[in-house]
Simulated assay, not measured.
Amino acid sequence: MDFDFTDDQEQLRDAVRKWVDKGYSFERRRATVKAGGFSRDAFREIAELGLCGLYIPEQYDGMGMGPVEGMVVMEELGRGIVLEPLNQSLIAGGVLSGYAPQAVKSAWLPKIASGEALVVLAYQERAARYRLDSCEAKAAPAPVAYTLTATKSIVPAGDQADAFMVPALLNGQLALFLVERSASGVSTQGYGTQDGSRAAEVTLQNAPATLITLDGLSALEHAVDIGIASACAEAVGVMDKTLAITAEYMNTRKQFGVAIASFQALRHRAADMKMQLELARSMSFYAALKLNAPAPERRAAMARAKYQLGNSMRFVGQQAVQLHGGIGVTDEYIVSHYFKKLTQLEMTFGDSLHHLGEVSERMQDTAGVFA
Rank of each mutant, 00 (worst) to 15 (best):
A301N: 06
M283I: 00
G328P: 00
K306V: 08
G64S: 05
A270L: 09
R17H: 13
V369M: 09
F339H: 14
F370G: 09
A150Q: 02
A287T: 05
D61E: 10
V258K: 15
A233G: 00
L323W: 05
E76K: 14
R362H: 08
T188W: 03
L342D: 05
A157C: 06
D195R: 04
G50R: 01
R314V: 05
A207H: 03
Y24W: 14
A288V: 02
A320G: 06
L211S: 09
A15Y: 02
N206T: 13
T188R: 04
A168Q: 11
D162W: 10
A199W: 03
F5H: 15
A223L: 11
L90C: 06
P296L: 11
R29D: 04
A35P: 03
A150R: 01
L243F: 04
K138P: 07
W108A: 02
T193F: 00
G93M: 06
L266M: 12
A113K: 09
D195N: 13
E278D: 12
I226M: 08
L96D: 02
A142V: 05
R131F: 02
A265Y: 13
D351Y: 02
S197F: 03
Y123W: 15
D331H: 00
P143N: 04
H354C: 14
G192I: 01
G36R: 05
K152E: 11
A287C: 04
E278N: 12
V68R: 13
R126K: 15
T6A: 07
Q173Y: 15
K34P: 08
P110S: 05
L279C: 06
T147C: 01
R17M: 12
L309E: 02
L289T: 00
F38R: 07
V20W: 13
A265W: 11
L83Q: 06
G350E: 05
E58Y: 11
A367F: 10
I226G: 08
Y191K: 07
I154N: 14
Q322D: 07
A199R: 01
Y191T: 04
E75H: 08
I228H: 02
S312R: 04
F256E: 05
A145S: 14
E201N: 07
A183V: 06
G50V: 03
N311Q: 15
V16D: 06
V316P: 02
D2P: 01
A157L: 13
K34Q: 13
H222T: 15
A367E: 02
S336L: 09
G326E: 09
V236S: 05
E180I: 07
K340G: 03
T193W: 00
R126F: 14
V335H: 08
V82A: 07
S230E: 03
Q308S: 14
A137E: 15
A163W: 10
A168Y: 08
T147S: 02
E248M: 11
V68E: 10
S114Y: 01
